[in-house]
């Protein structure tokens, strides 16, 4: 892969964003931008057009599902795949309704290690 993969992280945990950015960028395979609120994340998604968005489910200003719904409605962000990374272990919290709104989504429960995270991202992007 010649071009690096652009990843947008939307998560209110600053330290999480910091370490994920550090870990993903170490090999030069990923280009990472971070947003610590839902609103800012939507702005960045529009302006930066990332290849994939890592989205937290529970944030102070918006729920991850709400962010996903907004992105889905906008033509230029609708097709960006979303990977939820959530500390809520229950699959119910992501539920069927969200799936309808956001289309195909992927879930990775926290805590997750860097290796697994990279594998999952690559898997999602490899799909047609």
């Amino acid at each position: 892969m010649s071009k690096s993969i652009k990843v947008l992280i939307i998560d209110d945990e600053k330290d999480f964003c910091y370490f994920v950015k550090k870990n993903l960028m170490r090999d030069g395979m990923f280009d990472v931008i971070t947003a610590t609120s839902g609103k800012y994340g939507i702005e960045l998604a529009e302006s930066e057009q990332p290849d994939i968005i890592l989205l937290d489910l529970v944030m102070p200003d918006m729920f991850g599902s709400e962010v996903a719904a907004v992105l889905k409605e906008k033509a230029d962000t609708a097709n960006i795949p979303i990977l939820y990374i959530t500390a809520l272990a229950t699959d119910d919290d992501i539920g069927e309704n969200e799936e309808k709104k956001t289309g195909n989504n992927h879930i990775l429960p926290k805590p997750v290690r860097t290796k697994k995270l990279i594998e999952t991202i690559l898997n999602i992007l490899r799909k047609p």
Binding site: E13, D15, F16, F19, V20, K22, N23, R26, V58, I85, A87, L88, A89, T90, P109, K110, P111, V112, R113, T114, K115
Partner: peptide, 24 residues
């Protein structure tokens, strides 16, 4: 339990990622 899980897993995640970073 679900509340506790959420609150604890977030810092756990940071530890994971931080240690990954240190290890590297």
């Amino acid at each position: 339990a679900s509340g506790i899980a959420h609150e604890i897993r977030n810092p756990l995640e940071i530890i994971y990622m931080g240690v990954d970073y240190l290890e590297y």
